[in-house]
Design a protein around this nucleic acid. Structure first.
Lengths: 147, 147
DNA sequence: ATTCATGCAAATGTTTTGCATGAGC
DNA sequence: GCTCATGCAAAACATTTGCATGAAT
């Protein structure tokens, strides 16, 4: 994901470009192929800018999310994980590696299959959530669960 | 869901049947068609047994979950919601009302559709999560979001 | 110069834990 | 009587907020 696009979006929405913001965006960008926790984000952002503070992380994640720059995901244990949102992203689902957190986008959506089922149940279907879990290429033989 | 079955399961696993446990199970049973939060559970359990304590709720939810009596669900805001697990439950998904939390089971699973997609991506697929959201029969015209 | 962003500390909310007491078998 | 379950208080986390200071425009 393009850092310039991210910063332009911030600027055009009246947000200033600070060193901390740059560091956070850089970390998110470096990890754009997997989901990162706040803890990991803080840790890696500190490497880029020692001054980065946890409060700043939280405040910025909220902003990035509001601007649709960030995809927020909550694991079944209630832990929030983040990943930059694809700019061109239309509706899609993810396949997530349970070991390293790597995510891939799956364009196919099976939701139409459920349309008639929900009608049968008199549910007015508005949203859905589908996530596939497994082990990616590299992790298939070490299967150490991190998420 | 049958309270006797629940208590038998507890007993046969070495757990005692206390008034608090009965109250918690009763509340879960009364709400078996929707997801309840810990807060709601505490509130309703207190009506049945004033002595019921939040710590006891947490400890028991953990036990029930471990015995597969309870289905635990985490919303996108990280809030845990619970519902008794169906005894005969095989693999299935849920359709969840965003207003009242009512849930219905959907037996159909589209996961086979993704088998070849995950192979293309060299992902060894092990789990998945699918939830449908909408408004049930009764809530379609009041659409007040609670979950 | 003005406004927004940050850091610190404190507050909040949720869940967990230690320990003494009490209830179930 | 023994064991497990409970209640209380405190601890452990994750996240949010108030406020004064500092950086970006």
């Amino acid at each position: 994901m393009d850092l310039n696009y991210l910063m332009d979006t911030l600027r055009s929405n009246g947000y200033k470009i600070t060193e901390q913001r740059k560091a956070i965006l850089q970390v998110l960008s470096d990890n754009s192929s997997s989901l990162v926790s706040v803890e990991q984000l803080l840790c890696e952002a500190k490497e880029l800018n020692k001054k980065t503070n946890i409060t700043t992380i939280y405040r910025n994640l909220e902003i990035f999310e509001k601007l649709d720059l960030l995809y927020r995901f909550v694991t079944e244990y209630g832990v929030a994980l983040y990943k930059l949102a694809c700019r061109e992203s239309s509706h899609h689902h993810h396949i997530i590696c349970k070991s390293c957190g790597k995510t891939e986008v799956i364009d196919f959506c099976p939701i139409d299959t459920f349309k008639h089922l929900s009608e049968d149940k008199n549910f007015n279907l508005t949203d859905h959530k589908l996530e596939l879990y497994g082990y990616c290429d590299k992790c298939q033989y070490k299967k150490k669960v991190k998420i």
